[in-house]
Write a protein that binds this DNA or RNA. Structure first.
Length: 418
RNA sequence: GUGGGCGUAGCUCAGCUGGUAGAGCACUCGGUUGUGGUCCGAGAUGUCGCGGGUUCGAGCCCCGUCGCUCACCCCA
């Protein structure tokens, strides 16, 4: 632990073996339902013009006002490491005209995002999300499908101890009308300075306050759902109807608060029960004004972002990560120089058929090499020495049972495929 | 930005009211010739986060500093 030792920057998540295998499994599980639903990959830069986020996400949000990694590049441009995914996708959709073809445009992404927050359990400065966006369709059925895709992702990991919370933020006019009354209500509350300042920025925030006295007081506050226009109400009723028909259970949460300004209409959040303070494992919603705000045509959109780091923590909390996520099919222990040559060609050939093959190099003692084979979780092991090479026959040992069987070298592939 | 907790071998941690460091796991080798998991034996590893102070003497006390961690704000 010398003073000069370089460490990872504060608050980044890193995944090293063997946990990295679980991370990979979780990320893949989260995104596969979207692929099956016809969403296509979009790969985007991790940094963007700062203005994309100030305009898209909203200057009044905490994300933009105090959590962005912003710097000037050598040309004097203001650059920001992406704090979320949707704004960048919208920018790319507009820039590449992806909204000119058949709608909706359906896209998925996966990657790291950055927020300069104080780290804590489940909250990192660099974190991983997978997400999807469906652009150009306001049919409530797609809202339900998007939610179902997220739910399927969590289910395919094996998660069960989470709940889906859902509400509608309505359209701009509904929100404006509600805000007037909510501000009036808050004015009667006698708040401390910091809280009052927060309420001025976004009065909805008070619904999320963790202090008991504020929670109590807010029970009487006017709710946005009571201000929804008939169109918004109908739309939302349709969404829940489709969810019901899918058998997806949800909790209506009219006090739900989202951190990004662009949400409209249907919004939802997946909350895990076994995590600490940072229990949101995914969330999303409609953003019907975002594309126009960023200079594109006026198209609606809906999407979600799922936290890979948090989903992994949730999976671990539920005890559903099993150790043998990574196993080799075969472990070869070569004895001597000729055997090494033979092992290399044998491994190469088997790998070309998709077999996972490891070789114990380094002339280790046989006992040590066997231990290595054991650790690797390999199903089979062979010791390859002069006698095997000259006879062309191997002793194939199944590690789990300890049983061995004689196999011709040429028949190894078929033996492994059994 | 604010508050609490903690910093001792690769990992998890012990170290009594201050007398210059230990355990378990992991790792390497061995228990006679080419077969793992159990067992037994041997071995290697730390400037006890860093700097200063008190003291004859500090891992243990004091101050500072850096880092980690949990929580608040907020969020995936």
């Amino acid at each position: 632990m010398s003073k000069q030792k370089i460490q990872a920057p504060k608050g980044v998540s890193e995944y090293t073996p063997p946990r990295s295998a679980a991370f990979e499994f979780v990320r893949e599980a989260l995104i596969s339902p979207a692929r099956l639903a016809g969403y296509q990959l979009i790969e985007l830069p991790v940094f963007e013009d700062t203005e994309l986020f100030t305009r898209g996400v909203g200057e009044s949000t905490d994300v933009v006002s105090k959590e962005m990694y912003t710097f000037e590049d050598r040309g004097g441009r203001s650059i920001t490491l992406r704090p979320e995914g949707t704004a960048g996708v919208m920018r790319a959709v507009i820039e590449h005209g992806l909204d000119r073809g058949q709608l909706p445009a359906k896209l998925w992404y996966s990657g790291q995002f950055f927020r300069a927050e104080r780290p804590q359990a489940g909250r990192y400065r660099q974190f991983y999300q997978v997400g999807i966006e469906a652009i150009g369709l306001d049919d409530p059925a797609i809202d339900a499908e998007v939610i179902a895709i997220a739910d399927a992702g969590f289910k395919s990991i094996g998660l069960s101890k989470y709940r889906l919370e859902i509400t509608s933020l309505g359209d701009a006019a509904s929100r404006a009308a509600h805000r007037v009354d909510l501000v009036k209500f808050i004015a009667t509350m006698n708040l401390d300075e910091a809280t009052a300042a927060r309420a001025t920025l976004n009065p909805l925030r008070l619904f999320d306050d963790k202090r008991e006295e504020i929670k109590q007081a807010m029970l009487k506050a006017p709710l946005l759902v009571d201000y929804l226009s008939p169109e918004s109400k109908t739309h939302f009723a349709q969404v829940t109807h489709y969810l019901d028909s899918l058998g997806i259970t949800y909790v209506l949460n009219p006090r739900m608060v989202r951190g990004l300004d662009y949400y409209t209409g249907t919004t939802f959040e997946f909350v895990h029960e076994l995590l600490g303070a940072q229990s949101g494992i995914g969330g999303g919603g409609r953003y019907d004004g975002l594309m126009a705000e960023l200079g594109g045509q006026s198209l609606s959109g809906i999407g979600f972002g799922l936290g890979v780091d948090r989903a992994l923590l949730a999976a671990e909390a539920e005890g559903i990560i099993n150790e043998d996520l990574f196993v080799s099919d075969l472990f070869i222990i070569p004895l001597g120089e000729d055997a090494k040559v033979k092992a290399l060609s044998l491994a190469t050939q088997l790998r070309s058929h998709g077999k996972n093959v490891e070789i114990a190099f380094g002339d280790r003692a046989l006992k040590g090499a066997m231990k290595g084979a054991d650790k690797s979780g390999a199903r089979y092991v062979i010791v390859l020495g002069d006698s095997e090479i000259s006879s062309g026959t191997l002793e194939l040992k199944e590690m789990k049972t300890g049983a061995t069987s004689s196999v011709k070298i040429d028949a190894l592939l078929t033996a492994l495929s059994k």
